[in-house]
Amino acid sequence: MHQSPQDLRRIEALLDFYIDSGVDCFLGEEVVDWFERSRLQSSQTRHAAAAAPAGPSARRTGDEEASRGPAQDRGQAAFQPPAAAPPARAPHANPGQSAAVPDQEVIAAARDLAASAQSLDALRACLEAFDGCNLKLTAKNLVFADGNPSARVMFVGEAPGRDEDLQGKPFVGRSGQLLDRMLEAIGYDRSSAYIANVVPWRPPGNRTPTPQETEICRPFIARQIALVDPDVLVFLGAASAKTLLGVQDGIRKMRGKWMTYPAGGKEISAIATYHPAYLLRSPLEKRLSWRDFLAIRQSLSKQ
Rank of each mutant, 00 (worst) to 15 (best):
M1H: 10
H2G: 13
Q3F: 14
Q3I: 08
S4V: 12
S4E: 15
P5L: 12
P5V: 13
Q6M: 15
Q6C: 11
I11E: 15
E12S: 15
Y18M: 15
Y18V: 13
Y18K: 09
I19K: 14
D20R: 14
D20I: 12
G22Y: 11
G22I: 11
F26R: 14
E29I: 14
W34I: 05
W34C: 12
W34M: 08
W34S: 10
L40G: 05
Q41P: 03
S42G: 12
Q44F: 14
Q44I: 14
R46P: 04
H47N: 15
A52Q: 08
P56C: 10
T61F: 12
E65D: 09
R68L: 14
R68G: 12
G69Y: 02
G75C: 11
A77P: 05
A77N: 14
A78P: 10
Q80M: 12
Q80N: 13
P81K: 07
P86Y: 10
R89L: 15
A90N: 08
A90T: 05
P91S: 08
A93N: 12
N94V: 11
Q97K: 05
A99H: 05
A100K: 03
V101R: 07
D103W: 02
Q104R: 13
A114H: 02
S116G: 02
Q118C: 06
D121Q: 09
D121E: 12
C126K: 06
E128H: 03
A129M: 09
D131H: 09
D131Y: 12
G132P: 08
L135V: 02
T138Y: 08
T138P: 05
F144P: 00
D146L: 04
D146A: 09
N148P: 00
N148F: 07
P149N: 02
S150H: 05
A151Q: 02
V153S: 01
M154K: 01
V156A: 08
G157V: 00
G161V: 08
R162S: 10
E164N: 04
V172K: 00
R174W: 10
L178Y: 05
A185Y: 05
Y188I: 01
S191W: 02
S191R: 04
A193G: 00
V198F: 05
V198M: 05
V199C: 11
R202C: 07
R202L: 04
R202V: 02
G205H: 06
G205M: 05
N206H: 13
T208N: 15
C217D: 04
I225P: 06
A226G: 08
V228N: 03
D229P: 00
D231M: 06
D231C: 03
D231K: 09
D231T: 06
L233V: 08
V234E: 04
K242N: 11
L245R: 02
G246D: 00
V247A: 04
M254E: 12
M254F: 06
K257F: 03
W258A: 07
T260M: 09
Y261P: 00
G265S: 11
I268H: 00
A270V: 08
P276Q: 02
A277K: 10
Y278H: 14
L279E: 07
S282A: 13
P283R: 01
K286Y: 01
K286C: 03
L300D: 04
K302R: 10
Q303M: 13
